[in-house]
Design a protein around this nucleic acid. Structure first.
Lengths: 359, 359
DNA sequence: TTTTAAATTGAGACCGGTCTCATTGGCTTT
DNA sequence: AAAGCCAATGAGACCGGTCTCAATTTAAAA
C-alpha cells in the first residue's frame, strides 16, 4: 500500500495480472510489448503495473529469449587512458544499441583473460570485445567463436581465424616517424616497448605478442633497413612495463657512449618516463635527444618542449569495434572484417636534426 | 562428438545427468558444488561434464538464488582519468570478491543516471556504486535503497539518507591550498569549476550539486573570509565543462584589469587548460600567476614549471567503495558509513609570492 | 543382529519471464 | 443466417538452474 515501504519480494507479471484481473499471459503481452491486446486491457495492465511499481526482471527474460542484452569487454587495464577512451567509444555505441557492458581487466595476462572470457560466457553475454594479451595463445578466443557468439578484437588482431578486427595503421605510422627521424639525420634510433620476451632480448617481430606493437616494430625495422642503418635489432628495448623499469632502461641507454640520438616510445606512459629521465640526466630535448611517442596523451602538448606524437583514433577504435559487434548481434553474418583506422602525425618541438656525437 | 564442432544448443545439467546416468538433481549437486554426493558419482558427473564441455548458465543460477554476482557502477565519464582509476579500484575488489561489474556512464546527467539505475535494477545487480551527478535530485537513489539493494556513493555524498559513502577530505584540502596562497600574499584568488547553475552565477555553496566540489568551495570561501578577503563569491567561476569553455573563462579572467594572481582549478582538465591559456596570453607561471590544481594527473609533473596539485587517493576511493559494498553484500547490516580519505598537498614550482599588480 | 542415525539420491516444484496452442467472440462475406 | 476469419485471451509448457522433501542405501550404535 505505502509506496515508500521497502519492497522485499519483487513484483512479478503474475502479481500485475492478478491485480488487473487478466491472465498472466495477457499481462506479459502488455508488459513485454509483444502479441496483440485490446486497448482496454492494455490500460488496465499498465495501471496495475504502475500501482504495484512493477520492475521487469531482465534475467528471467534473458532465460527464455536467450539474449542477455549484454556485451562483455576484456581489456588490459581500464586505468590506461588508451583503454578508458576506447571503452567510452564502446559504451556509447552499446548504450545506443540497447546493450549494457560488463567490463573485466585482464592485466595483459592470458590466464586472467581466459578466466574473464569463461565468466562472461557463463553470464551469457551476447557478444564480446577483447583486446587479446597475446596473439599466440588464442584457443579461448576460438572457443568463443565456436560457441556461436560474435567476437570483435580491439587494437590487436588474430590472423588465425575470422573475426571482426579493428586496429590503427600502426605499421605505416611507425614507418612515417622513423623516416622523419632518418631525414633529420638520426643514425641511431631506439624503440622502447612494454612488450617482453623471457630473456628480455629482441630477435624478430615474431617475438612480439601484442599485435599493435609488432606492427609498429615491423615498420620501424624495415624503414631503418631500407636506409641501410644497423644493427637495428639491438635498438629495440623491451620490458618497459612500469615507470621504474622504463627509467632504468632509459638511463642505461642514454648514459652509454653510443647513445641513441632519438627515441620512439611505444606508448605515452613510456614517453613520459623517457622525458623525465632525459631531463634528470641533463640531456636537452630536442638538441641532445629527439623524442617521439605513440598516443597523444594530455601532457604531451604542455611540456617544454611539447612532444611529437602519433595520434591514434582511440575513441573511434572502440566505437568501431562495438559497431561491428552490434551489426553481428543484429544478424549480420558475413566474413570477418578488418578495419584499419588512420593515425595522425602530430609534429611538435621535441624533434630536431641529430647532434654530432663525440666518438 | 567432435569437440571442435560449433556448439549451437548449449549443454545443460540435464544433458550431463543423462550421460552420467544419474538424476538431474544429483548432477546439479556436483556441478553446483552443494549438498552431498558420493565420490563415485562425483567422478562420473565430472567426467560427463568435461566430455560434453558443459558451461554453467549463470543466468539460470541467478534466477533461483536471487543473486546475480554483479555490481552496477554508474560514473560520470569513464574517459575521465579520475573515474577510470577509481574504476580500476572497484573492479579489482569486485573481481577478488567474485563479482563482475557492469559499467554505465551518466555523462553527469541526472536523467541518464536514472535510466542507468533502472537498467541495472532490471538486470538484477546485487548492489550499486554511484557517483551521483546531483546531490539534490536523488529520488532514484532512494528507490535503490528501498529495493533492498546495497548502494555505495563514490566521491559525492548524499546526506538525505543512510548509505555508505566514500569521499576525499576535499574541504580540508581546499582550506590548505587557499591558506597557502594567502600566506604567499595573494589577495585575489579565482576558483574554476565545471559545475554550473542555470545562470552561470555563483551565490552560495548550496548551488553546487556535486558534493566534492561543494566541499572544496566551502573550504575556499571560509578560508578567504577568515583572512578578510572579498568579494569572494565573485571569485568562483562556473561552467568550465569542456576545454573550450575553460579557455574562454580563463582568458576573460586573466585579461581583466583586476585579474587574480592565483587560480585554483577544480580538476586536472581545467588545470591543463588554464596552464595553456596563461602561456598563450603571455603570463608567466609562477611569476605572474600561481596555479594549483586538484588531481595529480600525469602531466602536472612534467610541465615547466611543474604544477602544484592536491593529490587525491583516487584508486583507493574506488577500492573502498567496492569494499564497503561487498561487506554489505556479505551480510553486513549496520548503519551507513562515511569514509573520508586523506588528500596530499604536492607542492611544485607553479606557485610563488603574489606579484604587485598595477592599479 | 537389530535399531537408529546419517549419507545419498531422485522426483518435482519453483524462479519470472516468453511463447505456442487452443478457445472464444465479434465481424465480414455471400 | 451460416460460414469463414481474425483479433483477443487464457492455459500451460519451457528456459536451466536451485532446492525441498521423501525414499533408499549405508554406516554406526546398542
Amino acid at each position: 500500500m505505502d509506496p515508500n515501504s521497502p519492497q522485499t519480494a519483487s513484483v512479478t507479471v503474475a502479481d500485475v495480472a492478478r491485480k488487473a484481473g487478466v491472465s498472466k499471459a495477457t499481462a506479459a503481452r502488455v508488459l513485454g510489448g509483444y502479441g496483440t491486446v485490446s486497448d482496454r486491457v492494455r490500460d488496465a495492465v499498465t495501471a496495475a503495473a504502475r500501482a504495484l511499481d512493477y520492475r521487469p526482471n531482465e534475467l528471467a527474460r534473458s532465460m527464455t529469449t536467450g539474449r542477455s542484452g549484454t556485451i562483455g569487454v576484456v581489456v588490459g587495464d581500464i586505468e590506461n587512458p588508451f583503454f578508458s577512451l576506447a571503452m567510452r567509444g564502446i559504451t556509447d555505441v552499446a548504450r545506443q544499441a540497447g546493450f549494457t557492458v560488463i567490463l573485466i581487466n585482464s592485466g595483459e595476462d592470458v590466464s586472467a583473460e581466459k578466466a574473464a572470457i569463461r565468466t562472461l560466457i557463463a553470464k551469457r553475454v551476447d557478444g564480446l570485445i577483447v583486446s587479446p594479451a597475446k596473439e599466440t595463445d588464442v584457443e579461448h578466443l576460438r572457443e568463443v567463436v565456436g560457441s556461436g557468439r560474435p567476437l570483435a578484437l580491439l587494437d590487436r588482431g588474430i590472423n588465425a581465424f575470422e573475426v571482426d578486427t579493428v586496429i590503427a595503421d600502426d605499421r605505416q605510422a611507425a614507418e612515417g616517424v622513423t623516416r622523419q627521424l632518418i631525414a633529420l639525420g638520426h643514425r641511431h634510433i631506439a624503440y622502447l616497448t612494454a612488450c617482453d620476451t623471457p630473456d628480455h632480448l629482441f630477435r624478430t617481430p615474431g617475438d612480439i605478442n601484442t599485435g599493435s606493437v609488432r606492427r609498429r616494430i615491423e615498420g620501424f625495422l624495415s624503414t631503418c633497413r631500407e636506409a641501410g642503418l644497423g644493427p637495428v635489432e639491438h635498438w629495440i628495448h623491451m620490458g618497459a612495463v612500469i615507470p621504474e623499469q622504463t627509467r632504468q632502461i632509459a638511463e642505461r641507454l642514454l648514459e652509454a657512449k653510443d647513445r641513441p640520438t632519438a627515441i620512439i616510445a611505444s606508448d605515452s606512459v613510456i614517453g613520459l618516463e623517457v622525458f623525465k629521465t632525459s631531463r634528470a640526466i641533463g640531456l636537452a630535448i630536442p638538441d641532445d635527444l629527439s623524442l617521439i611517442s605513440f598516443h597523444d596523451a594530455d601532457w604531451t602538448a604542455v611540456t617544454s618542449p611539447p612532444v611529437t606524437v602519433v595520434r591514434q583514433p582511440v575513441y573511434q577504435l572502440g566505437e568501431m569495434a562495438a559497431r561491428l559487434l552490434v551489426e553481428r548481434l543484429n544478424g549480420f553474418a558475413g566474413p570477418g572484417r578488418e578495419v584499419v583506422l588512420q593515425t595522425e602525425f602530430v609534429e611538435r618541438a621535441s624533434i630536431s636534426s641529430a647532434p654530432s656525437l663525440p666518438r
